[in-house]
């Protein structure tokens, strides 16, 4: 990509960023929060006080300590420890990693799949469109959480299975949105021009239709991401999500659940607060982006 294109792109992004977030401190805070969470997740192995899954570093004597306790090794567990002496701060950092990994993979793959199917339906029409759109109808008539439960009940659990289940939860709405915006794009003359120029269908689809009809899907992405994070956490909390060897935030909350009634609140509440903060940050950003793109909600006058 030539330098000038990159510069133009970054100019557009900067302009977009300013019009969306300037004068909206809450949304900006959300954006900063999301950035921080992603950073912590990426850097977890280097900045976490302890590797909670390295059994050598754990000491059962350190188990169930409240926040601010000193561990046997002399370090302080700022947020307490769990039943086998893992530092909660470290488990949460690692858990954030898994939660975000699952949600991002599912949303990215699901969106690509949905957009491609939506474009295909719009471009090809006929029985291909009928099959794709019937499948969309089938999917959206079921609540996502129930569909995921069904799939996990049938195919078993695991990180990969959760990602598949969430992909199936994501693609349909994207396909529907893409198709409807692609259909209205196809009425326009540049598509006719491209057809007359003899371009192949797939080329029209990727080169012209895709960039022009993807905007509504992009607007929805943050919403899908927070939805996927919440869904993964719910499934893992219910014990049908990620395995115990790779605990996400949801599973950490479930682990602490057994100690909640005996007053050892930190094991469950700390990962819960992080989860809520993460989803809240994303939703604040998502709300702002949606509001920005909704012409009906523009200030009147």
């Amino acid at each position: 990509m030539p330098m000038s294109t990159i510069k133009r792109m970054s100019n557009i992004l900067w302009h977009q960023y300013k019009t969306i977030f300037a004068h909206y401190p809450l949304a900006l805070m959300g954006l900063v929060g999301v950035g921080l969470f992603i950073l912590v997740a990426l850097l977890a192995p280097w900045i976490a006080p302890q590797n909670p899954y390295d059994l050598m570093t754990l000491d059962i004597m350190d188990g169930l300590l409240p926040p601010m306790s000193k561990l046997g090794t002399g370090t302080t567990a700022w947020l307490g420890t769990d039943a086998v002496g893992r530092d909660i701060l470290s488990t949460v950092m690692y858990g954030l990693r898994i939660s975000l990994f699952v949600a991002f993979s599912a949303v990215i793959v699901g969106t690509i799949l949905g957009v491609l199917l939506g474009l295909l339906a719009a471009l090809k029409g006929g029985w291909i469109e009928t099959i794709i759109m019937r499948a969309v109808d089938l999917k959206v008539s079921f609540p996502g959480i129930l569909l995921a439960l069904m799939l996990l009940a049938m195919f078993g659990t695991g990180v990969d299975k959760v990602i598949y289940a969430l992909i199936i939860g994501t693609w349909a709405s994207k396909a529907r949105l893409t198709r409807s915006s692609a259909l209205s794009e196809m009425q326009k003359e540049y598509i006719d021009a491209a057809r007359l120029a003899g371009l192949a269908n797939w080329r029209i689809m990727l080169r012209f239709l895709l960039p022009n009809s993807i905007a509504p899907v992009l607007v929805m992405l943050p919403m899908s991401l927070s939805g996927a994070i919440g869904a993964e956490a719910t499934l893992s909390f219910l014990g049908v999500g990620v395995p115990i060897t790779e605990p996400s935030l949801g599973l950490l909350i479930a682990n602490g659940n057994d100690y909640l009634l005996s007053g050892k609140w930190w094991i469950s509440i700390v990962p819960g607060l992080v989860l809520v903060a993460l989803v809240l940050c994303i939703n604040v950003v998502a709300d702002r982006i949606r509001e920005h793109n909704n012409p009906f909600l523009q200030p009147r006058g």
Partner: peptide, 10 residues
């Protein structure tokens, strides 16, 4: 927004 953001189980 907060209500939407707090997962049901939590």
């Amino acid at each position: 927004t907060v209500g939407y953001s707090i997962p049901n189980f939590w």
